[in-house]
Write a protein that binds this DNA or RNA. Structure first.
Lengths: 116, 116
DNA sequence: CAAACCTTGACACAGTCGTGGTAATGTTGG
DNA sequence: CCAACATTACCACGACTGTGTCAAGGTTTG
């Protein structure tokens, strides 16, 4: 078997075993399992855990925020709906040319749908 | 003065006055103020409040999630960092052709930076 | 087989979110 | 001027996040 057990992974990543289970439950890093159900962390998972820790610290972002970003990435309908709301919200700085503005929104919308 | 006071806005949007202040504090809908400091909600703010309510209900999303999405939209460094982490995370379904994968990531990265 | 792991489930606790209330004080309109 | 609004600053409370610990039981290995 190549891959570390949860306690070994805990020591090389800095996450506690408890938190490794919690991170898995949040859907962000899912290790494989042995036949008996033991978690096994491979090199990819270990790397992802380390960079995740760094990401959270660097930007002062919560685990649940990253989980939500993942949901946004998965669910393009939600992503577009939120992006449209934010675009319409965007503090237009004073001058609002009504027809250019509409074309701007449409273009943005299309760009978003295309990226999905 | 055109625009509604907070209690009038409360009645036409379905948000409580308390929540209107909270939504403002979260940075999502910021009404103007009279000279004495009273909030005044114009047609644009009222519309944004109604669509925000609908958005939250439709997708079962929290206010803080939309606030985080707004932060993502504003801070392109954060957005790219999270998106890179998620991309590297993406459950590659079995076959990993190592060189195509790298070019794929680079292209995605460039698309993201361009959109910023 | 016994020690040293692993599993899930639960209790606990501080912190934040969403939401309501109240108090003390300022503003506006008839 | 007074009633009916507004403001900010607090207290409260349930739900969820993040984190630790413990219990009851299964697995692996010297």
């Amino acid at each position: 078997m190549d891959g570390l057990t949860i306690h070994e992974a805990s020591q090389t990543t800095g996450w506690s075993a408890r938190m490794l289970r919690y991170v898995e439950q949040s859907g962000l890093v899912t290790p494989g399992r042995t036949g008996a159900g033991y978690r096994i962390y491979g090199a990819a998972e270990l790397q992802r855990l380390r960079t995740l820790k760094e990401l959270l610290a660097r930007f002062d972002v919560a685990l649940s925020d990253v989980a939500f970003a993942a949901r946004l990435e998965r669910d393009s309908v939600l992503r577009v709906a939120i992006d449209e709301w934010l675009s319409a919200t965007a503090e237009r700085p004073d001058e609002v040319q009504p027809d250019n503005w509409l074309r701007f929104e449409q273009a943005k919308h299309e760009r978003l749908l295309q990226a999905a």
